[in-house]
Write a protein that binds this DNA or RNA. Structure first.
Lengths: 179, 179
DNA sequence: CGGGTACTTGACCGATTGGTCAAGTCCCCG
DNA sequence: CGGGGACTTGACCAATCGGTCAAGTACCCG
């Protein structure tokens, strides 16, 4: 799965053949179809693995935070850091979002993360720390900002320096704060 | 090109064969290769068309605005509206960004739009309307928010109502305003 | 009307695709 | 030691891929 994920991320899912994967691994084709029903199922399994890992990281980052705003900031930072480290997973997520065959596999995981973030946004609103607006929408907006920053880094168009990450976080917090 | 763009957007670029395109159009394969060198060149031409159209819309929206902040807001709204209308182009942009063969074709157009937005952000800073920070990064952040909102609409996960668009704009303006 | 250019056709090409399967090999358990 | 499930192999399959090209057809100009 790790090797296939690498190839998918570098070459693209469709242009990477099953033959290429098993050849690179030095195994027969039968091995592949013993463990996976199809090439599609392989990618789905990889995506599920990645989402689980990201979710773990987010939960760990949020644990121990005191107020809702701190939870939001930590969640943002954890997501950015994970995405920067896990280039392969991130690229596969990006691809999967563009393909109807896989978009549904992303949806559930994304919704869980967004709803979680939205909960903290709603908490901050209840505490009067930020003005009332649709928490789910704001959570998505923050997700959009962070995703785009990471994408820039991976595409080599801009380095995600600590300062850039700070600016990104500030943008998100400013975005939910302003009336 | 329009038919091919539709097919690419619905089915994906790779899964859509040249044979399927010419068959759907009711023409011979030779016609295709008379006008295009390859399937890749076709997508590149489609992407170029889309970028040109988007750029025109952005320029038209900004023209006539008075201050830098108004220019920014109009640019955001124009980008969102165009992306919502031009579902096909937007999906192809999203795909192209995930494929190294086509990512470069997007880069130039994206940079032009971002630099333009960054200029207005810098103007607003010079006028003291918003605090000083990297204008290019902020422009990218706004692009990330709007892109994500449109993506949600196209994937059917959230309707981009006028209110949602307003919230999105407010998020962006808040993001660049807060210290 | 004759000839040439612009365009169109679809059979055809070698390569490659995702997937199958008969024939093993390996190793654990009785 | 013998048998049986777990696992592996790679030749093989029909289908399809992007792309080519000889053989037209349509139409304009002299």
């Amino acid at each position: 799965m790790a090797y296939a994920a690498d190839r998918f991320a570098d070459n693209g899912y469709h242009p990477t053949s099953v033959a290429e994967i098993v050849e690179g691994l030095g195994v027969g084709k039968g091995v592949f179809y013993w463990y996976f029903d199809s090439k599609e199922e392989l990618l789905r399994a990889i995506l599920a693995d990645g989402q689980l890992d990201l979710r773990r990281r987010q939960r760990a980052a949020i644990a121990g935070a005191e107020g809702p705003m701190e939870r939001i900031e930590r969640g943002i930072r954890a997501s950015i850091e994970w995405s920067l480290e896990q280039r392969v997973f991130f690229r596969l997520f990006q691809f999967a979002a563009t393909d109807d065959r896989f978009a549904d596999n992303l949806r559930k995981g994304e919704q869980v993360a967004v709803r979680d973030a939205a909960k903290h946004v709603a908490d901050a609103m209840a505490a009067g720390e930020i003005p009332d607006r649709d928490p789910v929408l704001l959570a998505h907006a923050m997700l959009g900002v962070t995703t785009h920053l990471v994408q820039l880094d991976h595409r080599g168009l801009m380095k995600a320096t600590p300062e850039a990450i700070d600016s990104c976080v500030a943008f998100c917090l400013g975005g939910i704060s302003r009336v």
